[in-house]
Design a protein around this nucleic acid. Structure first.
Length: 269
DNA sequence: GCGACAG
DNA sequence: ATCTTGTCGC
């Protein structure tokens, strides 16, 4: 039932990439890089009568099937602050003809549905396994999803891409110098003077930093605060949970189809 | 034991 | 992105 244009079988991948870049540039105009939400972050400001607190933090991640690289699982989880208890999860199994990115938009559907249903655990902010504005064109996955879902999003990367003169070893050197300081955070200012995000070590034991950047409708300060609040381990809980669960879901799906067919679903025999 | 990290 | 194995260290 694939309604692919039989006319352009070879250039479709290139076309999609171009379209994607165009869409990024369009959506980028709608990006909001400051706090644009009504809830409050910390309970220290108890004077904030009437305004709700941040309680539900979402996280998204995708895992890929080892045997069948076109099969992926998108997972959204919502956890509750300050307990970090997961109160909601949802999965979406998808087939990808082209890598990664279009599949990521499955999250938009999941979120849309939650909102339409007035789901009690609809997240107030969403953490994305991938960068926000810390991106070659200043518009990573976290921004993309944020703008599409009109939700505050935070980008969390595990590696630093080379943008504006930033590099991983430099960050780690700077962090090294801060060894004795309480704050294990360094601001990522590029050669241009632009602040792209921060690199920081969430726990004492994590030598390798994570990279936090603005996704949408949030300031870098707030983003970092929220990431800190959810870091039990190196990878913040919302993403860690989404990662583990999407992986487990694929695994189950695999063994389940193995029990049915009595064979691995590679189809390459 | 579990997490970080190697490669 | 995925897997596995092993070491180190709290």
């Amino acid at each position: 039932m694939d309604s692919e244009g039989a006319s352009s079988e070879s250039s479709s991948s290139g076309d999609q990439l171009e379209k994607w870049t165009e869409e990024q540039d369009q959506l980028k105009k709608k990006l909001i890089a400051y706090d644009d939400f009504s809830w409050k972050l910390s309970s220290s400001m108890e004077l904030s009568q009437g305004s709700e607190m941040l309680k539900y933090v979402g996280g998204v991640d995708m895992s890929f099937c080892k045997e069948d690289s076109s099969l992926a699982c998108a997972c959204l989880i919502v956890l509750e602050l300050p307990s970090l208890r997961v109160v909601h999860h949802d999965f979406s199994l998808l087939r990808l003809h082209v890598p990664y990115v279009p599949g990521f938009l499955a999250f938009r559907e999941i979120l849309q549905k939650m909102r339409d249903d007035k789901h009690p655990f609809y997240p107030q902010v969403l953490m994305v396994d991938g960068n926000g504005i810390l991106h070659p064109r200043g518009f990573g996955l976290a921004c993309h999803l944020g703008v599409l879902a009109h939700l505050p999003t935070i980008g969390v990367g595990k590696n630093l891409h080379h943008v504006d003169g930033l590099n991983q070893s430099e960050v780690r050197r700077s962090l090294q110098l801060k060894e004795n300081e309480h704050e294990q955070v360094i601001t990522l200012v590029g050669n241009s003077g632009f602040t792209w995000g921060v690199g920081f070590r969430p726990t004492l034991s994590s030598l390798k930093p994570i990279y936090v950047s603005v996704g949408h409708r949030i300031s870098l300060d707030s983003a970092v605060k929220i990431v800190k609040m959810t870091c039990k381990y190196r990878v913040p809980e919302p993403i860690r949970q989404a990662d583990m669960r999407s992986r487990a879901y694929l695994q189950e799906h695999q063994t389940e189809s193995f029990k049915r067919t009595g064979t691995v679903t590679t189809g390459s025999d």
